[in-house]
Design a binder for these strands. Structure first.
Lengths: 324, 324
DNA sequence: CCTTTCTTTGTAACCGGTTACAAAGAAATT
DNA sequence: AATTTCTTTGTAACCGGTTACAAAGAAAGG
C-alpha cells in the first residue's frame, strides 16, 4: 500500500502539498497538482482513512444500536439510517442489543473507543446512565428517553387511542388487548391510550401482556382466544403480535373481521401481504430512521438544530381485519 | 479525553509500561501495575482504538455488503453475522448495495480505506472485478462467485429438484414457476434444478421471471394465475414470491393446497406464520451467516482453513401449501 | 564484593495522515 | 533595481497508540 510519503517522493513535492491536492484545502499550482495526481494514479494511492480519523477526530461513522435486526420493524429503520448516512458520506455500524443493558453498554464503550461520530439508539428504558458522559451526540429512535436525549418518535398514546376509537366506532362490544412488554415505554403508552379511550366510553378491555416477538405471541394469542371466546375486538401492541393473532384466530375458525376485529401497530410491510391483511396504526418507519439520522448528523457537525425532539405522524390504515 | 501519556505522567511511569499493562504484553512488576491501573481508573482512561488500528493495521471490524436489509432473508443473516463477529470481538459495518455494481464498488473502496479486516458479500454477479486486488479476505455469502472467492452457500440446484420432486409426488399435473431474476446465479440454479427434474418425468413448466421483492411479485403472481387457471403446482424463487402468490390465489378464491400447491425457497420466519403457512425449501439462514463469518475471521487471522468453500444443507419443510 | 544473568523499565521511532508556521518564488509597486 | 505583497511550497510537530532496543535494577553465582 502506497502512502502519502511515497506519493510525495514519486512526484518530487512535499507531503503537505500532496495533502493539499487530496483535500483541495489550499491553492496548489496547476502544474504541481498535475504531477501529484499523476503520481497518485501511477502508484494507485488510496489515502488511509484511519490515519485521517486519528488526527481529525472524525470517523464518518455512526453506531446504530437496536434490539434485534430480525424483528421486522428494524430492517426498514436500518435501511433508512444506512441510506441517509451514506448520502452524507457516513458509514453505519450495526449493533443488536437484545434490549440487554449490559450488551448495550459494551457496544457504547466499543463504539466510543472507535470514535464513531454519533449514536442512534432504540433503547430499553427511559433513563439509563449508559449514555452519561459520552463525548458524542446520541439520538433516541422510536423510544423516547426523557428530555435529556434528542429523540425522534411517534405519539404512541394517540396511536392507542386511535385504535380504540376505530374498534369502538366499528361496533366492537367486547375489547381486549395484547400489549407489548410494559418495560418498554412505547408499549405502555400505546396501552394507556387504548384504555383511556375506552374508559371514556365506559368500556373496559381484557389485557394480556405480550412480547414483540412471533414465538411468544402465538402462545399469548392462543390463550386469549381460548379463555375469552366472547372477545370481538383486539388491539395488539405491534404487527407481529397481530399476525400471530390472525393465525391463531383462523386456526379456531373465527371469521375476520366479522367475528373478530384486529388492529396492529407499526405498519410493517408484511402486514399488507398476508390474508387477511392486517389493519394497523402505521408509523412512518423509513422516515423515522431518516429524520433521526439527519438529526444525529446535524448534531455531530454542530449545525444549529431548531428542534431536538421530532414527533412524526401516525395514521390508521384500514385493511382486512377491521370493518371500517 | 485522557491519553496514554496522561496516564504515564499521572502514574510516573513511561508510556511503554502503560501500554504493557493495557495489553499484558510483557511482565510488569506488580506494584507498578497497580499504580498504572489506579491512574487509569482515576483518569477514566479509555484507549483510543483508532490509534491502535493505525499502528497494528487491524481494525476488528468487517464489512457486510448485502443487497437490501429490508428483504426478509437478510436480517437473519445480518443477525448471525453480527452475533458471530461480536463473539470474536469484531464490529460489523452494514452496507446495502441494491445489487448495484457501482454502489458495491464505492462501498468496497470506502471499507478498504477504513482498513476493515474483511468483507462478507452477497453480490450480484459471479465474476466482478470489484474484488480484485484487495488486501483483505472476502467471503461470498449465499451467492457463489466462481472458484476464486471463498464461499458459503447452499446447493440451489438440488433445492430446485427437491421442490419439483415434491410437487410431482404430491400428484401435481400442471406445473409452473415464478423464478427469481435470472441474473442471480442462485435464482437460475433453483430454476434449472426444477426444470431438470420435471424433464426427466417428461413434464414441462410454465415459467415467469420475477424479482425477489413483494411489490413486483404481486403483479407477476396475479398474471400467472389469470393467464393459466389450469396450473396446480407452483415453485417460486423465494418465500416472498410465495407469500405474494398465496395472497393472489386467495383473492381469486383458490383453495390451497387442493387447487394449488406452492413451494417456496429460503424458509424465512414469516412463511410459517401466515395462513396458510408456506411449504418451502429451507436454507439454514442463521448458520449460513455464522459459518461465513467464522470463515472470514479465520482468513483474516491467517488461521489455517481446511476448506475455503462450505456447502450447507437444505431441506424441505412441509407446511400448509402442499399436500405432502 | 564483583561479575553474570534475568527482570523490569524507558527512550524514541513508527503507523499515515494534517496543518501551523516559515520560507521561497513570483508578481506588483515604487 | 529594490521593495512590497501575494502565491506556492516545505519542515516538522501532532494525533495516540505500539514496540525495538537499550539501559537500569535485582537476583544469582563465583
Amino acid at each position: 500500500m502506497a502512502t502519502i510519503r511515497d506519493v510525495s517522493k514519486y512526484s518530487g513535492v512535499s507531503v503537505a502539498t500532496v495533502s493539499r491536492v487530496l483535500n483541495n484545502s489550499s491553492k496548489v499550482k496547476s502544474t504541481t497538482k498535475k504531477k501529484v495526481l499523476q503520481a497518485i494514479k501511477e502508484l494507485n494511492y488510496k489515502p488511509n482513512a484511519v490515519a485521517k480519523t486519528l488526527f481529525k477526530k472524525q470517523s464518518y461513522s455512526i453506531g446504530l444500536i437496536i434490539p434485534d435486526i430480525s424483528n421486522p420493524f428494524f430492517p426498514e429503520v436500518a435501511r433508512a439510517v444506512e441510506d441517509t448516512a451514506r448520502h452524507y458520506g457516513y458509514r453505519v455500524i450495526l449493533c443488536n442489543s437484545d434490549g440487554n443493558r449490559e450488551k448495550e453498554k459494551d457496544y457504547i464503550e466499543a463504539l466510543s473507543q472507535n470514535h464513531v461520530d454519533g449514536l442512534l439508539v432504540t433503547s430499553i428504558s427511559e433513563n439509563s446512565d449508559n449514555f452519561k458522559g459520552l463525548h458524542m451526540p446520541v439520538v433516541a429512535l422510536d423510544r423516547s428517553k426523557g428530555k435529556e436525549i434528542p429523540c425522534v418518535y411517534v405519539d404512541n398514546y394517540e396511536g392507542g387511542k386511535l385504535a380504540a376509537r376505530t374498534l369502538f366506532e366499528n361496533g366492537g362490544k367486547v375489547f381486549a388487548e395484547i400489549s407489548g412488554p410494559y418495560n418498554l415505554i412505547t408499549a405502555k403508552e400505546r396501552s394507556r391510550g387504548f384504555h383511556d379511550f375506552l374508559k371514556k366510553k365506559e368500556k373496559t378491555a381484557l389485557t394480556y401482556e405480550g412480547e414483540f416477538d412471533f414465538k411468544h405471541s402465538i402462545v399469548v394469542a392462543g390463550k386469549l382466544l381460548d379463555e375469552n371466546p366472547e372477545v370481538d375486538s383486539v388491539f395488539v401492541g405491534n404487527d407481529q403480535i397481530g399476525i400471530a393473532l390472525i393465525k391463531e384466530a383462523m386456526l379456531r375458525g373465527l371469521r375476520i373481521p366479522n367475528d373478530l376485529q384486529i388492529i396492529g401497530f407499526d405498519g410493517i410491510e408484511i402486514g399488507g401481504l398476508i390474508t387477511p391483511s392486517l389493519s394497523t396504526i402505521q408509523q412512518p418507519i423509513y422516515d423515522l430512521g431518516k429524520e433521526a439520522t439527519k438529526l444525529l448528523l446535524d448534531l455531530a457537525n454542530k449545525k444549529h438544530v431548531e428542534q431536538t425532539s421530532i414527533c412524526m405522524p401516525i395514521n390508521y390504515v384500514k385493511r382486512s381485519t377491521t370493518t371500517g
